[in-house]
């Protein structure tokens, strides 16, 4: 590592990408809210609204290309995530699931869109808010469906277990339902987006830095860029997958809250 550093030292030391690359300067003045992630969230809302208004405005029996794209996305969420998992009451939850899926997908894909190139969900506060909304939704549904006492009792006491085991198991169940579930939901999305963006930064910035080095390192840099491009396609896969998993788990939690016994 040290010799590599010395070889490329002509253009100054290489600063490896770190979490500092996720902090952006403000657009104007000292307002700490006018930064790139906030801008991207508003942009995503605007883009999604425009896309679906255009896709559904001239709905016809023989769909246009835009209408077909919008309908197949909606059909995927409604059938594969709503109907197959939640069951016969699924129609009430499709708006929430669909909003969640499209919002996360758009914000993730911003990570590989040229010029934007920052996945909003790699700032941990955005996944936290989404996970809190899911948390409130599935507990509210469970409490309203079964009544608060039965719902809590179902979570705390698993049927068919010797009484002494409840001392061991009840804290785990409570921790799972009220702490671990929303936490892992948010952290899974955040960590995937954070690590993916960091990985792309390492290869692209590293390739750029190798290009400034001596002739031997210049020859290596195309490999770094090629890996960067390959990993960009891999990132696209991960971004779609994480949006899907977040929505899938939300649907599963809702289905679990609706079911009579846990």
């Amino acid at each position: 590592m040290r010799s590599l550093h010395l070889l490329s030292a002509s253009g100054g030391g290489f600063v490896p990408p770190s979490s500092n690359d996720f902090i952006f300067p403000s657009f104007f003045g000292h307002s700490q809210y006018a930064t790139k992630p906030i801008f991207l969230v508003f942009l995503s809302v605007l883009l999604i609204s425009i896309f679906f208004v255009l896709a559904s405005r001239k709905a016809a029996i023989v769909p246009s290309k835009l209408q077909f794209a919008g309908e197949s996305l909606y059909g995927f969420v409604r059938n594969d995530l709503g109907r197959d998992i939640i069951g016969h009451e699924f129609m009430r939850f499709v708006p929430y699931l669909f909003t969640l899926f499209v919002f996360i997908l758009t914000n993730n894909i911003f990570g590989i869109v040229p010029l934007l190139q920052f996945p909003t969900m790699s700032h941990v506060s955005f996944p936290y808010v989404l996970a809190i909304i899911t948390f409130v939704v599935f507990h509210y549904i469970g409490i309203r469906k079964q009544g608060i006492r039965k719902y809590i009792k179902d979570i705390m006491f698993m049927p068919g277990v010797p009484k002494a085991a409840y001392i061991l198991l009840t804290p785990i169940e409570i921790a799972t339902y009220f702490i671990t579930r929303p936490l892992t939901l948010a952290l899974r999305l955040f960590a995937n987006m954070f690590a993916g963006h960091l990985l792309l930064l390492v290869f692209i910035l590293g390739g750029d830095h190798l290009l400034k080095g001596v002739i031997g390192l210049k020859l290596i840099s195309p490999f770094a860029f090629a890996f960067g491009i390959g990993l960009t396609f891999f990132e696209f896969l991960v971004q779609c997958l994480q949006a899907y998993i977040f929505t899938l788990l939300t649907a599963l939690y809702i289905a679990g809250a609706l079911a009579d016994e846990h």
Partner: peptide, 19 residues
């Protein structure tokens, strides 16, 4: 509906039990 949910919650159970 519970079949898939149980599979997904394995890691959650292990983590919360350990923590």
């Amino acid at each position: 509906p519970n079949d898939d949910g149980a599979a997904w919650s394995i890691v959650g159970y292990l983590l919360s039990g350990m923590l």
